[in-house]
């Protein structure tokens, strides 16, 4: 199976976008080689702005660019693109609904060896709480590319959550991403697994495991966490007996919370949330971390079997 990091797909998409849209400008905070904005910097040096290790200034500058009709993409690691600059994002970008795209890489536990200080496991929760903010977590390289292009078309602030390691390619160019729309990857009648980001491929694996045991699992990819696709979630709740959510993020405030909010108000349904259980991460390889913190296909399948008992 081909594996590509979503940050690599981001870097390539930015270059393509830069060629067709002169209004794209890119800002980074001294991490351009890691966030892959260096690709854009090489191609369009006059439209690339390294702001140094100064994330607050970067977000404010991006806001200023947007007031003048530019479409700024501001990139750094997710941990710095959220908590460190939440007031700048809130007041300079989201409150005036400025057209700034925050493309944050190195999200989640799969940052790996850098450890808990660098593993954003609550970034979706922060961003989801801010009015006017759209929150998107692409699952693979193709979806990332489409997300970047659509984010540039959409007029308003968007948070795009990207990862460090190579992850399986799930989609080809026949796939059509749409902001605010979930995507059913596989039909099923017993249980629904709603996943986002790197957990989508694990949800598909889990569905295979469940099939071996005679359990029919529906798999839904929710890339847009906000605004969330209520219809696809309510439909799944009405057509299957239980919902499992899976995300590389705290179970507090992320996909699991968003799905629970939709269900409790519209179609109360038994559910379990697979994610980081209100704890910080630690150093280790990405795979070892996902194993230790229970973000695996096996855990998703176990949760499904448990909830159907």
């Amino acid at each position: 199976m081909t594996k590509i990091a979503t940050r690599d797909a981001y870097g390539k998409a930015l270059v393509e976008l830069g060629k067709i849209n002169q209004n794209i400008v890119v800002l980074d905070a001294d991490l351009s080689k890691s966030t892959k904005t260096a690709d854009f910097a090489k191609e369009f040096p006059e439209r690339f702005f390294d702001m140094g290790i100064a994330e607050q200034g970067m977000m404010g500058t991006a806001a200023g660019f947007a007031t003048a009709g530019k479409i700024p993409f501001a990139s750094t690691f997710a941990v710095f693109a959220t908590a460190r600059v939440m007031d700048q994002v809130r007041n300079s970008i989201a409150y005036p609904k400025l057209n700034v795209k925050i493309a944050a890489t190195h999200a989640g536990l799969t940052v790996g060896e850098d450890g808990g200080s660098h593993q954003a496991i609550e970034d979706i929760a922060y961003m989801r709480a801010v009015p006017n903010m759209t929150v998107i977590v692409p699952a693979d390289a193709e979806e990332t590319k489409q997300v970047i292009f659509q984010a540039a078309e959409y007029n308003g602030p968007v948070y795009i959550r990207l990862g460090r390691p190579n992850v399986p390619v799930l989609f080809d160019e026949n796939y059509k991403f749409e902001i605010g729309k979930g995507h059913q990857m596989r039909d099923g009648s017993d249980v629904t697994i709603i996943a986002t980001g790197i957990m989508v491929s694990k949800a598909l694996e889990a569905a295979d495991k469940l099939k071996e045991q005679g359990i029919s699992a529906r798999v839904i990819n929710i890339a847009t966490i906000k605004p969330i696709d209520k219809d696809i979630i309510i439909k799944a709740a009405n057509e299957t007996r239980a919902i499992i959510t899976a995300e590389e993020h705290s179970i507090i405030g992320g996909l699991g919370s968003a799905v629970a909010e939709v269900l409790s108000e519209n179609a109360p349904t038994k559910m379990k949330r697979i994610g980081v259980q209100d704890t910080f991460g630690e150093s280790g390889t990405p795979d070892a971390l996902l194993e230790k913190y229970g973000l695996t296909a096996v855990k998703i399948a176990e949760a499904a079997i448990e909830i159907l008992k």
């Binding site: 400008v25 500058t61 200023g64 300079s92």
Partner: peptide
């Protein structure tokens, strides 16, 4: 910082 963005643009 916002002024910087406007000025750069």
């Amino acid at each position: 910082a916002a002024a910087n963005g406007m000025a750069l643009a």
